[in-house]
Design a protein around this nucleic acid. Structure first.
Length: 584
DNA sequence: GCCGTTTTCGGCCCGACTGTTTTCAGTCG
């Protein structure tokens, strides 16, 4: 019964728990805690967010302190959170420190120390009070503040509007093509100023889900000339900072771009530094210090010689630190610095087929033939046509009779095609009782069955997905968590239980390539691989051109440390077919 | 608060920029 007080509450997700510990770090910082204590909370939050297993389960098992960065105190707070639903220290701090104060530290130029003084000395508790104090010129009366401070804070408040919820991030699919065009332009037009190298750095190079800006690193004989070419690009809207060795600008899409031009002998150091992530770089530097080496964007200082060594390539930087070159997608401090050899990661060319796409039969924009032509252009050997099923709604549903007609159409088409296979499939809805919306006989006729939750997210998604895994005809669970990047969090899903069910039943789990989904995400996909589950990378294309979205699925797979063998559709269809449940 | 081929105490990555300051704290990436 839902109202039975004995019913245990469903576990908090790792992301939700990590948010609470990040908040604790912020509030301790505003409370004046020493910076290392604050960092301990943030490191702990990152460890929780990156953990492949349920933090709640690890806490109950008493093994959560095995995660690096989580010690006795954080474990006690986790236990309190899971048993009582709250962390006493957080409750106390929230009462003491207004939420508005935490919000205004997100204004550029205003950190915790100065925000704390504004609160203590002027009673400022949020954006409105800050704006009023600036209007009355009360800020400049404080020591360490002046008219410039007021001016900048006002500009920052105006720029932020009413939204201080944090910086907006752009989907990788929006940002990366712009970065690639800029790089191509700088390489091309840069020939006139002796350009040597131009590379994308930052989170875009790491193929993260989203980015907050773009970083470009270059070398050229005439650095200022390259900056001029950058500033005059048609992709650039306005340049807000320009120097002889770099510039900061905005694209017309509102994305911020930094270009840095360095000497060739430092290119490796700078590219490594600006590729990040922060956690990766911090870990590298801490390890280096123990060996008497100090790493910065300019070089590696060796205590033994007092010399700073510069490197033209990243390979040399990593080699000097005793490490193999680490692919950017792995640079998140999730174990990559302990590697003696880097695992072989999957590449776009490894995919032989795409097993999730839609046509005009449901909500797609192309015919089956259009989708075949697009897949061939991408070098694929097979596709599955998986239109939405009988209960899809929006007038786009496919009745059982229509599906039978599609199966026949696919069979006929296969007779005409050489060296290409079309599979008759469906993306069936997992209904609220865990059943599917075609009968079992019809499902058994299909070559490929994708099952997904599209409705009633609040209605036991875990139980429904496990039931779908146990269905003999279901091959793969699509976009398993339902998240939409920068838009919607995952539904309340027990990922551990889903992965266990997938492993037990031989069901594949999808990495959906839609750039807004990339679902499973990297941490969960890596967890699935470690549990022995095979992943499938699909485009979920709704038109011929969006089959290229498998690119984003590959990006996520690489961030999940997957190799070609971990992904089912790197195999030819006859080999993949044998891996289906029951070897059908 | 975490952690240990220096350690259970005493450290904890690096450098640039800014605005306010006579030498630097705070902020940022």
């Amino acid at each position: 019964m839902a109202d039975d007080p004995q019913t245990p509450p469903s576990d908090l997700s790792n992301a939700r728990i990590a948010d609470l510990f990040d908040e604790l770090g912020d509030l301790y910082e505003l409370d004046g805690a020493v910076v290392h204590r604050v960092m301990a909370y943030r490191n702990g939050a990152k460890a929780m967010r990156d953990a492949p297993r349920s933090i709640a389960a690890l806490t109950r098992a008493g093994t959560v302190t095995e995660l690096p960065g989580i010690g006795k105190t954080l474990a006690e707070k986790l236990e309190a959170l899971l048993t009582t639903g709250e962390i006493p220290a957080l409750t106390k701090l929230r009462a003491k420190i207004p939420d508005g104060l935490r919000m205004i530290t997100r204004l550029p130029g205003l950190g915790p120390k100065r925000a704390k003084r504004l609160h203590a000395e002027l009673g400022i508790d949020g954006p409105e009070a800050l704006r009023a104090a600036i209007a009355d010129q009360r800020i400049r009366a404080l020591s360490g503040f002046g008219p410039k401070s007021e001016e900048k804070l006002l500009a920052a408040l105006d720029a932020a509007g009413d939204d201080l919820s944090g910086p907006k991030r752009e989907l990788l699919s929006k940002a990366l093509p712009i970065a690639e065009q800029l790089v191509a332009e700088l390489r091309d037009r840069g020939a006139a100023v002796g350009v040597h190298r131009v590379e994308i750095a930052g989170s875009a190079r790491r193929q993260a889900d989203s980015v907050h800006d773009l970083d470009l690193i270059a070398t050229a004989d005439d650095a200022e000339g390259l900056v001029e070419i950058f500033a005059s690009s048609e992709l650039i809207d306005d340049v807000h900072r320009r120097g002889t060795n770099g510039a900061s600008a905005n694209t017309h899409t509102g994305l911020s771009v930094d270009l840095r031009v360095v000497a060739p002998d430092q290119f490796g150091n700078l590219l490594q530094h600006f590729t990040g992530s922060k956690a990766h770089n911090v870990a590298i530097r801490e390890a280096a210090v123990k060996r008497g080496l100090h790493v910065s964007e300019y070089g590696i200082l060796d205590d033994a010689t007092g010399e700073t060594e510069r490197f033209a390539t990243e390979e040399e930087v990593y080699a000097r630190l005793g490490l193999p070159w680490i692919p950017p997608e792995l640079r998140e401090n999730r174990g990559e610095l302990q590697l003696e050899r880097v695992p072989k990661l999957i590449e776009l060319e490894d995919l032989r087929g795409d097993l999730h796409m839609h046509t005009t039969a449901s909500d797609g924009r192309g015919s089956i033939r259009d989708m075949v032509d697009a897949a061939r252009a991408l070098g694929h050997e097979y596709i599955a046509i998986t239109d939405h099923s009988a209960s899809h709604g929006f007038g786009d549903h496919v009745t059982p009779d229509q599906l039978r007609a599609t199966i026949e159409e696919v069979r006929r088409l296969n007779d005409e095609l050489d060296d290409f296979t079309v599979l008759a499939g469906s993306e069936v809805n997992i209904l609220t009782d865990g059943s599917l919306d075609y009968d079992d006989e019809l499902l058994a006729e299909l070559d490929w069955v994708v099952a997904s939750v599209h409705t009633a997210f609040g209605s036991d998604p875990t139980g429904r997905i496990i039931a779908a895994c146990e269905h003999p005809s279901v091959d793969v669970i699509a976009h398993p968590t339902g998240r939409l990047i920068e838009k919607r969090t995952a539904y309340d899903l027990d990922v551990d239980a889903m992965i266990e069910a997938a492993a037990r039943t031989g069901t594949f789990l999808e990495i959906n390539g839609s750039p807004r989904r990339r679902d499973l995400h990297d941490v969960h996909a890596r967890q699935a691989k470690d549990a022995g589950v095979l992943l499938v990378i699909d485009s979920d294309a709704h038109g011929p051109e969006t089959q290229e979205n498998v690119r984003w699925g590959i990006a996520t797979a690489r961030r999940a440390w997957l190799g070609p063998d971990d992904v089912a559709n790197t195999r030819p269809w006859p080999a993949l077919r044998k891996l289906r449940k029951g070897g059908r």
